[in-house]
Design a protein around this nucleic acid. Sequence first.
DNA 1: CGTCTATATTGACAGACCTCTAATTAGGTA
DNA 2: TACCTAATTAGAGGTCTGTCAATATAGACG
Lengths: 120, 120
Amino acid sequence: MPKQLPLTALDACCSPLAREPLSEEQAVELSRLFKAMSDPVRLRLLSLIASHAGGEACVCDLTGAFDLTAPTISHHLKVLRESGLITGERRGTWVYYRVHPEMLARLSAVLVPGEETVPA
Amino acid sequence: MPKQLPLTALDACCSPLAREPLSEEQAVELSRLFKAMSDPVRLRLLSLIASHAGGEACVCDLTGAFDLTAPTISHHLKVLRESGLITGERRGTWVYYRVHPEMLARLSAVLVPGEETVPA
DNA sequence: CGTCTATATTGACAGACCTCTAATTAGGTA
DNA sequence: TACCTAATTAGAGGTCTGTCAATATAGACG
């Protein structure tokens, strides 16, 4: 069972970065998400999962795309999972991951210079 | 004079993360931007600059918001500058920074699940 | 020129991060 | 039970990062 994320900064606000200065708490929460996306392998994993048929991908679908060992892929998936960007579910032998699109949408809304909040 | 950024991935594409798998090059470029934003201090700097009156802020406007030494702030500004997210200009005694809003808009477009490209 | 203030650079150090190998857990099948 | 595969966890090594004190650079002003 993947543990769930806090995300008060993104919940409460989604006021864009440029509207008013971020509080330290908001900055800490946001920075955690950006840090999760600050690695090329994790970005590609995220993209592979998000663009995979059915909106989900088995770990076995992912490992082949990289010159990395399975434990390394597993590590990156764990980072993405703990950031709240993806969730994983075991079904039989395999573990399937899918992205949290609302999370991406909220992040997107924070970045856009002049826009309003995207309603949940 | 701050050096200028490459950004082919963001220039050429802006196809969202979920449309098709990111190439390794695109992932590397994007990850550089996200890494620049993966620190709470840098996020707050970005936000302080973006939301400051006139769209720009002097370093002297920024240091007061943190319990950090001037060299540390200067270091973070350099990281943001080299990522292409901000530019700095010296006018007399002070150095003024402003954000590149197109950069934020493009990043935002990459994240949003189903949208089209934001034209430059 | 000399001096003061505003930023930036250098160099060092502690902690975090990415990767690997080796070992472990979970489920399927005989 | 035993054995095989899928995936994760544990631990170690090398690199990167955030912070500081000390130093350097740039401009303003006597």
